[in-house]
Amino acid sequence: MSRTITAFPAPRLHLLARIAAAILGGYGFTWGFIAAGASLMFAAGMGFHDAEFLASLLGVLAFVAVFLWTFAARRLWVVWAVLAGGGALLAATGSFVQSLLV
């Protein structure tokens, strides 16, 4: 009988890591998504409150999609890399566009 070695020795720790990625990583990614979306839509000529509202609505959909993808993905390190890297890149984009507008 062979024993397979996994990245997480305990299934509960693996589940806890997925839950943390879904909630914390999803929040960070969504925050960056909303910041980038609102600033880009405002820069394109949309009213500020309209851009903010639309970006927030799309952010809810993005959070749900990222949350579900976190549990469907095969490799947890890929999930963290996409969420942390993508969230940071989106937040930096939003900040850069906002600095150009001011």
Rank of each mutant, 00 (worst) to 15 (best):
M1C: 13
M1N: 14
R3G: 15
I5E: 07
T6E: 07
T6N: 08
T6C: 05
P9Y: 08
A10K: 11
R12H: 14
L13Y: 13
L13Q: 11
L13H: 12
L13R: 12
L15E: 09
L16G: 10
A17M: 05
I19T: 13
A21F: 04
A21V: 05
I23D: 04
I23L: 10
G25P: 02
G25K: 01
G26V: 01
Y27I: 13
G28V: 06
F29G: 06
F29D: 05
W31P: 11
W31Q: 13
G32F: 01
G32V: 03
I34Y: 02
A35F: 06
A35S: 07
A35Q: 10
A36M: 09
A36C: 04
G37E: 01
A38F: 06
A38G: 04
S39C: 07
L40E: 14
F42H: 15
A43M: 07
A43T: 07
A44L: 10
G45R: 04
M46D: 10
G47L: 10
G47Q: 11
F48D: 15
H49T: 15
D50E: 13
E52R: 15
F53R: 12
L54T: 11
A55I: 02
A55W: 01
A55M: 01
L57Y: 07
L58C: 05
V60G: 07
L61M: 12
A65H: 05
L68M: 10
A73C: 01
A73D: 03
R74I: 06
L76V: 00
V78W: 12
V79L: 00
V79R: 01
G86C: 04
G87D: 04
L90D: 10
A91G: 09
A92M: 13
T93S: 13
G94W: 01
S95M: 13
S95V: 14
F96I: 14
V97S: 03
V102A: 15
V102R: 15
